[in-house]
Simulated scan of single mutants.
Amino acid sequence: MPSRKITMQDIADACGLSRNTVSKVYNGRGSVPQSTRNLVLQKAKELGYGFPAENVSVPHQPIGNIALLTRYLPSQFHFGTLFLSSFTDMISRAGYTLRIYEVSQEELDKKQLPPHFAPAQIAGIVGIELFDQDYVGMLCQLGIPLVLSDSSADTITSLIECDYVTMENIAGVMAVIRRLAEAGARQIGFVGDYNHCGSFRERWYGYQQGLMVNGLQYDKRFCICEPDSPSYADSAWLLSRLDRMSSLPDAFVCANDFLAISLMQALKKKALSIPEDIMVTGFDGTTQSAFTDPPLTTVRIQGTEIGRLAAELLLNRIRIPSFPYSWTHVKSTPIWRESIRKT
């Protein structure tokens, strides 16, 4: 039993709400979102407020819907597979149901929601693989709590009106550049379209900064940074880009593991040995990266933790709409493997 009488103010403080909101729940006066009502009743039950706990009704049925908006559902090469699992678990425990909406290219171009998306039925939105800044801006204007995980390259330098949680990119790539330099690399190229998305842009920043702090020069002749397209998955296309170079760098830093694996195939077609002739690194920490020949040095993304944090941010935003927006980066971890030489 509590050592003193619990008041509505105690419940309000525990929930991060106003006393007036708690009063509305108990007096039945005024409109209170169902999620807020459930939070107040649950906290009252925990604190032993007012009346017997068995009279405090906390529904076990879903209390609302959270919408996942995405251009493409995460694949096995994407950190989003782990993200989605932990995110779904967190919101389900809070009483929400996840609804998944794939945004078509036409909807993206016209800045339209999917036709079966009903805003009045959605308590919050999570965005993955939405790399269009104007579309993100449209979502921010809906008045529905929104959290993004990665976004367009321009979004990361804009004052967007939503929460944002993603992997740390810059320091991870800088650590890779430092290790390559210690292994003897003096010319290092970059592979990937740095305008493709926010994470690629930050990895490009890390590449540029890493070169500078290690006393190395940037040379665009060693970079393959053409606009993103299916061609990057084609080792023959990458081979044609390598053949255009008058000489090859000592190492390539790739924007993700998918690109690194394709590049390794292209380099082998040139009869080059990895890492003896040239070193290669990726980013993401996919399962596939451990089984390449040789195993790929990469930077592992904590997809599970990013998913949990995104859920916490969104649930908090639903409860407290006026809370300051948060931009969160979760530390990524370099994984040193045989695709780079030992120092």
Rank of each mutant, 00 (worst) to 15 (best):
E102H: 03
K268M: 03
M8I: 09
D134F: 04
T286K: 11
D257E: 01
F117T: 04
V280R: 00
E46S: 05
F87P: 06
L130Q: 12
L113V: 04
I170V: 14
R71K: 13
E161C: 09
Y325K: 10
E46T: 12
T97G: 00
G28V: 08
L41Q: 12
M167D: 09
S35N: 10
S262A: 14
E54S: 14
L84T: 05
C225S: 13
G50A: 15
G28P: 05
Y218E: 09
D109Q: 13
P62F: 03
I6S: 01
N169Q: 12
L148C: 07
A271G: 00
V22E: 07
I63P: 02
L159T: 14
R241Y: 00
G64W: 10
C223I: 11
L142S: 05
H329Y: 13
L180V: 05
D13F: 01
L313Y: 05
I128M: 15
G282M: 02
G80P: 11
A44F: 07
G206H: 02
A233L: 12
F283V: 04
Q141M: 06
Q265C: 03
Y164I: 10
P295N: 01
G80T: 03
D132Q: 05
E46W: 01
L216E: 07
Y194P: 13
V56T: 10
T287A: 11
G189A: 02
I11K: 02
L148I: 08
Y232H: 03
A67N: 08
T286S: 15
E338A: 14
H329M: 15
D228F: 15
I177P: 03
W327V: 13
E226I: 01
A233W: 07
M138V: 05
A118S: 12
Q217E: 13
E129S: 13
G95Q: 06
D257S: 03
W204H: 11
R221C: 08
A120N: 14
W204R: 10
G28L: 08
C197T: 12
Y218R: 08
N20Q: 14
L314H: 04
K43A: 09
P52S: 06
A14G: 10
S23V: 04
M1E: 15
M212L: 13
